[in-house]
Design a protein around this nucleic acid. Structure first.
Lengths: 252, 252
DNA sequence: CAGTGGTCTAGACCACTGA
DNA sequence: CAGTGGTCTAGACCACTGC
């Protein structure tokens, strides 16, 4: 019996499923750690490691003295949902669509060169795409890839699916992302692609994605129709991990 | 020698300080776990618990086979920065200001009653405040408190500091928050308080804050000038904790 | 009071990395 | 190869909850 996953990951998935399936009903107490140790045969440390994962996801709350209680399950969000419009849509049973407006290889603009930690004049691959959800225009995506990664895209029909799924199959491992969120008025391009007046408020997310060894791979400027999508974040006092940085800007 | 904090918390703070002070220079390898065990005298499990905290904060990256490397320190963000404009400003050496426009006790509006899990007709306390950063208008805040918490505010000069600091001193323990982010055009009130035209794009954050035992305490609708503040989030593939939910909205 | 989770220890085996 | 972090175990003591 091959076991590719660590035991604590398997247990965490098992527990997540019990919550999703209502085996551990929302609002009630979950079984005690001692009980889970008896049931699973794993040691307490391993059981705790699994439970802690659910805690930081907000699926379990409380503790100290009484069994933790189960919260109503928010849809599980994996990292790929952060960076892939397609995977996000699919996770909700929606259909993501895309139309490539432009794809170009060119010298990296100065502002982006700094973000991507590239020397001046380095070549990059840039895309402009309109994204749809169930056929309705929802987002305008302006993405810049470092050259060696972007070259994979020329072997790929960019109108036919998820760029990130394609890159993953090529061995590109995205591991970390920084997302900066603000609001902008629609420019001419946004307005045309989203079917709204120029100046309409849009929710903008700028994202820098890195590999496991911290090399910047991709920068994207995505502008959403707020009537079509919003972001939400959960965070807790115990847990510093859900980091929402509120950055002051000098007056634009 | 009283030790109020758990050892792993003390160690984590120590390690964070070493990164901030450059004792562990950014970009270089941190000491191995074995080394830290020798140095601190703590067991490996405890050292790992401390290091894992820094990992999920994004201060350390990498692993398996080689020592983790240190990333340039993002400013440490505690939970209080999420929910308190004042504490956020202070953490950056800025000065937060506020002007109370309105404070009222009234029946809870229907949309909010659901969010706050209150029976229909329940009384709440509502505030409308203009917030400034270094004297410049930056945000308009519409906050609703459940009654027993809101009553604390009548014993408090709301023009003179942080509401959350005041509530904390009254024994109200905020523990968890859900933040929903989108973009809206400024309405008449926003426009007047922020000094921009009606329709100007604003970054809106709606927040529901809960106590440790999951009781909703406060709901707020905060609208920022994007030229004055943006949000950013860090997340990783290993770690599900930084949850960014991208929620579809039916057309408004 | 008994049961719970929070903390801490000591020791073990493995997979992976880099010289 | 030796050293690293990833995983897992077994057992211990404590602070806190609820009865």
């Amino acid at each position: 019996m091959a076991r590719l996953e660590p035991l604590h990951v398997t247990l965490a998935e098992d527990f997540r499923r019990r919550i999703a399936d209502g085996v551990w009903p929302a609002g009630e107490s979950a079984p005690s750690e001692a009980e889970l140790v008896r049931e699973t045969g794993a040691s307490r440390g391993t059981v705790r490691q699994a439970l802690n994962a659910l805690r930081t996801e907000g699926l379990l709350v409380g503790g100290q003295g009484r069994s933790p209680r189960v919260r109503k399950a928010p849809p599980a969000q994996s990292f790929s949902h952060f960076i892939s419009f397609t995977q996000w849509a699919e996770s909700m049973g929606r259909v993501a669509g895309q139309r490539l407006e432009e794809m170009a290889r060119r010298a990296c603009p100065a502002e982006l060169a700094e973000e991507l930690e590239l020397p001046p004049g380095e070549q990059v691959v840039q895309l402009l795409r309109q994204r749809t959800l169930d056929g309705v225009p929802t987002m305008v995506e302006r993405t810049t890839f470092v050259l060696d990664v972007g070259l994979h895209l020329f072997t790929f029909d960019t109108n036919s699916g998820s760029i990130f799924a394609h890159l993953a199959s090529q061995g590109v491992d995205l591991a970390r992302g920084r997302h900066t969120i603000d609001a902008v008025g629609a420019d001419q391009t946004d307005a045309a692609l989203l079917g709204v007046p120029v100046g309409e408020p849009l929710l903008r997310v700028r994202r820098l994605t890195r590999t496991r060894d911290d090399r910047p791979i991709e920068y994207s400027d995505d502008r959403y129709l707020p009537s079509r999508a919003t972001f939400s974040i959960e965070n807790t006092a115990e847990n510093r991990s859900a980091m929402l940085h509120l950055n002051p800007q000098e007056s634009a």
